[in-house]
Simulated assay, not measured.
Amino acid sequence: MKTATSQIRPAAMLGLMACLTFAAGTLPLTSAAQDSTRTIATGSNIPLSTNAPDEYMVKPGDTLWDISRLYLRDPWYWPEIWYLNPQVANPHLIYPGDVLKLIYIDGQPRLTVAERGGGSKRLSPQVRREPLSRAVTSIPYDIIAGFAGRPVLLDKEQVDKAPYVVALRDEHMIGSAGNEIYVQGIPDAAVDSRYSIVHVDGKLRDPETRDLLGYTGIYVGGGPVARAGEPAKLLLTQSVREALQGDKLFPESTDVKDDFVPHAPSSDVNATVIAVREATVMGQYQIVALNRGSQAGLEPGHILAVSERGKVVRDKYKRGGLGADNISVMGGGSKVQLPDERIGLVMVFNTTPRMSYALVMEAQKEIREGDSAANP
């Protein structure tokens, strides 16, 4: 089990940053938030949430996004409100039971960890050893971990390098649960380590350049390595469709980066949703692929606003009037481009040079392929 020792992950760096009350000096806490001006006095005029509480106890299942949404109208601005106490060398992670308080320092609102574990324990700079699984993460960990273990949106390099099914035992043409398969590309895999099998399906192309960026995938099944080597032998213990020669393998369990904090890109980003996971429309906590990656400046934690592209319509009433005589003939009239309409927010959690994956955080309408994604 991983533990947080002297090296603390940056997630909680801003991680509601331990604006800690410690023995050398206690930060003054106001008894109530300043309702008259619920904005951050940093010159950016970023509004606090109208219902921002003066005190909040972190609950199991909370994410940093949830907590930031509680305090800020626009959660990606949370670095503006989290305050790092410079006298604490290693800011602590945030845990369920911790009490957060909204305070004012030099007239500016700041969020601080006032109590640890729901008690009145006085905080001091020290190393806290806790299982990382208990710490609050930026976004739901199980969702992105599940996506990593069963990837169905794949970048081109990932597919090119992935191990693959080279044959099925007893000359079977297709495999299902209970069959043994032979795999090339995992010579050092430990016996009993588990892999997912994914069938590579459609191509993902950049809608602007038509360059091949990646592929969609279909989850086939999975199972443990029965014998190491090259080829290795894997026992297919679960299947939802037939396994075929050439299908790709990915580890079921993998380390997933979740130590980022939501923030807006520092430069302009104009991307397009090029794929959605397992469906034609998306809702909250679904995953999308974008046609922009690290080469365009995207990085994990970036927040993008998704907009439905405005349609082009015919203006049949340009000359005015409402009578039938003023309506142009069928198909006539000048073209009018309707404006794009914002319909949601996504948070980037993984990037490749030319493509990135993002989690839908908010959606007022279904997010679809072809929608645009840009700075919020």
Rank of each mutant, 00 (worst) to 15 (best):
I8E: 05
L20W: 07
L20I: 15
F22I: 13
A24Y: 09
T26E: 15
T26L: 14
L29S: 09
A33F: 08
D35R: 15
D35E: 15
S36G: 12
T39Y: 11
I40L: 08
G43M: 04
N45V: 11
I46V: 11
P53T: 05
D54L: 13
Y56V: 07
K59H: 14
K59F: 09
P60W: 05
L64V: 09
D66G: 04
R69T: 10
L72G: 03
D74L: 06
I81Y: 00
W82H: 14
L84I: 14
Q87E: 11
H92F: 03
L93T: 03
P96C: 12
V99P: 01
I103G: 06
Q108A: 12
P109W: 00
R110Q: 06
R110Y: 04
R110P: 00
V113W: 03
V113P: 00
E115A: 13
R116Y: 09
R116T: 14
P131C: 10
L132F: 07
R134H: 10
Y141W: 13
I144W: 00
A145E: 09
G149C: 05
R150G: 06
R150F: 10
P151M: 02
P151W: 01
E157K: 02
E157I: 06
Q158K: 06
L168V: 07
I181K: 01
Q184W: 08
A189P: 04
S193H: 11
S193M: 12
Y195W: 06
I197S: 05
I197H: 01
I197W: 03
H199R: 11
V200L: 06
V200K: 04
D201G: 09
K203H: 12
D206H: 08
P207G: 04
R210C: 06
D211S: 11
L212G: 02
G214F: 05
Y215H: 03
V220N: 01
G221F: 01
G223D: 08
G223N: 04
P224L: 00
A226D: 12
A226L: 11
R227E: 15
E230F: 01
P231E: 10
T237C: 11
T237S: 13
T237V: 15
Q238T: 05
E242C: 10
A243W: 00
A243K: 02
P251Y: 00
V256R: 01
K257N: 12
D258S: 13
D259Y: 05
P262V: 06
S266V: 05
S266Q: 13
S266R: 11
S267N: 10
D268C: 11
V269C: 04
T272D: 08
V273R: 03
R277G: 06
E278K: 08
A279Q: 12
V281I: 15
Y285W: 14
A289N: 04
G293C: 04
L298I: 00
E299R: 09
I303Q: 03
L304T: 02
R309P: 08
G310Q: 01
K311T: 13
K311Y: 12
K311H: 12
D315H: 01
R319M: 14
G320T: 07
G321T: 09
L322M: 13
G323S: 08
S328E: 14
V329A: 15
G332K: 03
S334D: 10
K335R: 13
V336D: 09
Q337H: 08
L338S: 04
M347D: 07
V348G: 00
F349K: 00
T351C: 00
T352R: 06
Y357I: 13
A358H: 05
L359W: 00
M361Y: 05
M361Q: 07
R368G: 08
A374H: 07
